[in-house]
């Protein structure tokens, strides 16, 4: 465990430091309107998160949820993310179960943001104007700057849907993918109880966030 820890910390500082100067493939230039279209959802999400952080506990959970839900809807491609975490069984899932799990995933995502972002102590977000491209997807590098402590690298993967760029995955400290983690976390529940069991789990997660 000791090793795991120190490695993680080292990694975080190393990568954060090298992020700005590393040569990346297919870099788009800042100021390019197409690049701004890619970074806009990330900016919108960051602004929304800062707003609920500042609203904090005085606003309360319900108010934070009301405020962040439309932002989450507008910035994430939640239906696609649902399909990605459900994986290959998606096509064999009845349409009613598909919409139920998508609705539960959406609720859970917003609820966890509302529950986690509940206080403000001088944090800010920094968005790297250079956008990385691979296939149909774009990668936006951001940093969470904290008054104390090292910056945290958060990278957003976006894909175009209906002419709009939407977030489909988040990478924590340049290494841990939300989709990959959730796929692992949900693999067992999907194997044992199927999409219905996952829907129940996600609904419970959203409900416990309110507490």
């Amino acid at each position: 465990m000791v090793q795991f820890v120190s490695r993680r910390l080292v990694l975080g500082s190393l990568l954060a430091a090298s992020a700005a100067e590393s040569a990346m493939p297919a870099l788009a230039q800042s100021g390019d309107p197409s690049t701004q279209a890619v970074t806009a959802p990330v900016r919108q999400l960051n602004d929304g998160l800062l707003a609920i952080m500042k609203a904090g506990s005085t606003a309360g959970y319900a108010a934070r949820l009301n405020r962040i839900s439309p932002v989450v809807d507008a910035t994430f491609d939640l239906p696609l993310m649902t399909r990605l975490v459900v994986g290959s069984v998606w096509t064999k899932t009845p349409a009613t179960d598909q919409s139920a799990v998508a609705a539960a995933f959406r609720k859970m995502t917003a609820a966890r943001y509302a529950a986690s972002f509940k206080g403000y102590s001088g944090e800010s977000f920094e968005i790297d104007p250079k956008v990385e491209a691979r296939g149909p997807d774009r990668l936006v590098h951001t940093k969470l700057i904290r008054p104390r402590g090292t910056p945290v690298a958060l990278d957003y993967r976006l894909r175009q849907s209906g002419g709009q760029w939407r977030i489909i995955d988040i990478y924590y400290q340049n290494s841990i993918s939300q989709i990959a983690t959730q796929r692992s976390d949900f693999a067992r529940i999907l194997a044992t109880g199927g999409v219905k069991a996952l829907t129940i789990h996600l609904t419970q997660l959203a409900a416990t966030s309110a507490k």
Binding site: L15, S18, A19, S22, A23, M24, L80, R83, L84, V86, G87, S88, V89, W90, T91, E132, R134, G135, D137, L139, H141, A153, D155, R157, R159, I168, D169, Y171, N174, S175, I176, S177, I179, A180
Partner: peptide
């Protein structure tokens, strides 16, 4: 390697 997350290599193909 660069600071690009290695999982960005996964094409994340839409199951649908």
């Amino acid at each position: 390697k660069t600071a690009t997350p290695t999982t960005f290599e996964d094409p994340l193909e839409d199951p649908a």
